[in-house]
Design a protein around this nucleic acid. Sequence first.
DNA 1: TGGGATAGTTCGACGATCGAATTAGGGAGA
DNA 2: TCTCCCTAATTCGATCGTCGAACTATCCCA
Lengths: 167, 167
Amino acid sequence: MTSAHEKDEGFDDTALIRKLRQLTVETDHFAEIFRTAHHLHRTDLNALTVIMDATLGGRSLSPGELAEALHLSASATTALLDRLEAAGHVVRDRSGEDRRRIELRIREPARELGRRFFGPLGTELAREWSGFTPEERQVIRRFLTATIEATVRTRGRLARGEEGHPS
Amino acid sequence: MTSAHEKDEGFDDTALIRKLRQLTVETDHFAEIFRTAHHLHRTDLNALTVIMDATLGGRSLSPGELAEALHLSASATTALLDRLEAAGHVVRDRSGEDRRRIELRIREPARELGRRFFGPLGTELAREWSGFTPEERQVIRRFLTATIEATVRTRGRLARGEEGHPS
DNA sequence: TGGGATAGTTCGACGATCGAATTAGGGAGA
DNA sequence: TCTCCCTAATTCGATCGTCGAACTATCCCA
């Protein structure tokens, strides 16, 4: 289990963690290339994703809710929305039921961006995954679910300060 | 295939992409909580990971190489290294073979950080993955490899401007 | 030896993000 | 009805990560 060839073919925990880390790096780099090509900052693209998800889910989203989803302050979110509104991606609508509340409406340029981001990647992923059987896909889904849960649980511990006392 | 229950249990491409996206979001949030707890910026932690990987791989790393790995300018990398050196994580050593070149040396506080980041998460992942058989692990590895390759390929196309003309 | 290239840093400017202060709106209790 | 407290979002001034240009130090080839 020490030769370079076998090391690349391993599927013990360490090998899978290494693959997972590489996937994270590559995915982040992909998003970065996309952002650069479309003159968007990291948080701009993240925000559009959050707003789009809410829109597709039939939920309205306020600046406060966006701030919470992005872990940004209210003022940073205001500036972010200023940028997105200026770029024509989003419109702020004052809610009729509670005039303190603003609801964010996605516009077509943002929808087009979403199609450009997820379209080619989704197509390529579908092609690469086309050889997996339904049984194999169940394994993959279980893996992803388990990995998400492990990450969320570890993060919860960390957030509650159960990871020692770094401060 | 339209009920909410079945939707959550799906393993077609769309369902797997949704899981993958969620994993990305949760992983990013985990990293963010960790950074906040340790007073590190995103690029600071990314840099430490790159330097640590090079160190563990027995390779020396220069600021220029770090800049390239992080997609930062040389000057931003200088500022970043100033921060990391001030925090005691890294030391800059002037290379003996070419005095233009600096080699980055990781220090113990950074190693401890790495243990705190990957240790608990790795333990939790190992626990969650412990039920997967070797055959299933091979499926998972193939999935991760395929997904990485799809991402890299799509990104390459995007970087070469084969994705339409967004500018 | 001189010139061009490489490697990294310094400098001044930009802009994303922050916390505090502010403005607008809603609701409950007296 | 009025007042007070809370909610929602924005404005404001400050901080700091990042950028490109300019600079310093080093290397190598003609």
